[in-house]
Simulated assay, not measured.
Amino acid sequence: MKLKTKIGVIGTGFIAKGLINALENQEDLVVSKVLTRRRIEDIKAFPDKDLLTNSVWEVIENSEVIVECSGDAIYGTEVVDKAFSASLPVITMNSELQVTTGSYFADRGFITEAEGDQPGCIAALKENMVQMGFKPLVYGNIKGFLNRNPKKEEMEYWGKRSNLSLQMVTSFTDGTKVQFEQALVANGLGGDIVQKGLLGPDAEDVESGGSYLAEQAKKHGSAISDYLLCPKGPAGVFITAEHEENQRAALEYFKIGKGPYYTLTQNFHLCHLEIIKTIRRVVGGGGVLLNNTANPSISVGAIAKVNIGPGEKIPHGIGSFLVRGEAVKMKEHIGHLPIGLLVNAVITRPIEAGQIISMEDVEIPDSLALKAWKEIKQKVLKKYKVGIR
């Protein structure tokens, strides 16, 4: 009888619990241990409390594959580093980690984002489309609603209604999450962004929005990563692409459109349920689906939502009511503060609403994530031969 592959899970939130439930009856996979920072006796309504541990080494020693879904870039960085020290492959559902420090790990071991969240779904859709001869122009995300400066009371209501943490629902609503997702897609799939903060046009439907973004990509001269604000659209992803002229009649017959741009949509992303596909891909010897690459060009910088004075303490930037994240070209903003590093920070200089925050504007605690970012930044300085500005 073939033994089941042992999966170590990092995190005890919505994604982790869903994955543990989904793996319960798999014939080839089993959860070995689940790492949590919380007191185990305080955790209620967990699928199997016997799996829980506060020891990262206990997870590593009992696992063959690590799935990191803590949602925390700084903590996740420490865990991935320890998993790499044991030569374990790491699957993440953590675009925040990937964009902040994933490039530090990309050439040190095996790290890939999973299908299930939008970046992994876009990467899988690209693999499928390229095999059919499509030439992607737009790697697209579909959002139904954004409010870049939501009120705390609103977010508390929606957090309770959706069973999500206040921090998580705020980062979804203010756009920080989609900025991370599309930064990862740009880096991992070799795309670019047209402008800081992405274009994010309003769209009546995905096809017309995709065609508009395809025109912008043609003007830009490369494939782009972006999103549509499309309230009537599905909760999924899309790619708008070109194809050979000799396929135009066939594609019109297949009801894909008259061209020259063709939009293929995946109208769902099923989060923890789809992680299982990536686990099997890794166990079966498949390559990286998507990561931030060792030489990224796009980051997610911290942007002030309000005026912030010196001495202001920011416990966390992602999901904050003081700042939000925007995708930026690193060569144009090499001194920016990645919002994933903005944890337990103190502002040192006056910052105006709408200003991009620089590393010199804050004091941040030392961490492996900070060390990793400094190493990534040095690579960027060397790559683009630019100074800090």
Rank of each mutant, 00 (worst) to 15 (best):
C69H: 00
L97R: 10
D81M: 02
T100G: 14
C69D: 04
S95C: 14
T100I: 12
V90E: 06
T77W: 02
A73E: 09
E96A: 12
S63D: 01
T77G: 10
T100P: 13
G76P: 14
I66H: 01
V65L: 14
T101S: 13
V65K: 03
L88H: 06
D81L: 06
T92H: 06
V90L: 01
A73L: 07
G76S: 09
S103F: 05
V79Q: 07
T101H: 01
S103C: 11
L97H: 08
M93Y: 02
S70D: 11
L88E: 11
Y75K: 02
A83W: 10
T101K: 02
M93H: 05
D81W: 11
D107H: 12
E78P: 07
T100N: 13
A86G: 08
E96I: 07
D81V: 00
V80M: 10
S103I: 08
G71R: 01
F105A: 10
P89Q: 09
V67R: 04
S70E: 05
S95V: 13
G76K: 02
A83Q: 07
V80F: 12
G76W: 12
S85W: 12
L88G: 10
V67T: 09
S70F: 12
E78I: 03
A73W: 06
S85K: 15
F84P: 11
K82V: 13
Y75A: 13
Y104K: 06
A86T: 04
F84L: 15
Y104H: 07
D81E: 15
S63N: 06
F105P: 15
V67H: 02
I91W: 03
G71W: 06
S85Q: 15
P89K: 02
V90S: 04
S95R: 01
G76F: 04
A106F: 06
D72C: 02
A73P: 15
D72T: 08
I91K: 08
T101G: 03
A86E: 14
V90K: 02
Y104R: 00
E64P: 13
S87A: 11
E68Y: 04
Y75D: 13
V67W: 00
T77I: 05
I74K: 05
F105Q: 11
I91E: 05
Y75I: 14
F105T: 08
N94G: 11
G76T: 11
D81Y: 13
L88N: 04
A106G: 11
S103K: 04
S70H: 01
T100F: 10
C69E: 09
A83D: 12
V80S: 06
T77C: 12
L88Y: 04
S70Q: 00
I91S: 09
C69I: 10
T77Y: 02
V79P: 08
S85A: 15
E64H: 01
V90Q: 07
T100H: 14
T92F: 09
V65D: 07
I66V: 11
A73V: 04
A106D: 09
N94H: 10
V67S: 03
E78N: 15
V90Y: 03
D107F: 13
S87R: 13
D81N: 15
D81T: 03
T77S: 15
A106V: 07
D107C: 13
G71K: 00
V67K: 00
S70V: 03
D72E: 14
S87V: 02
G71M: 04
L97A: 04
A106H: 04
S70A: 09
A86W: 12
Q98N: 14
V80Y: 09
E68T: 01
E64N: 01
Q98C: 15
Y104I: 05
M93N: 09
T92Y: 03
S85I: 11
E68M: 05
T77N: 10
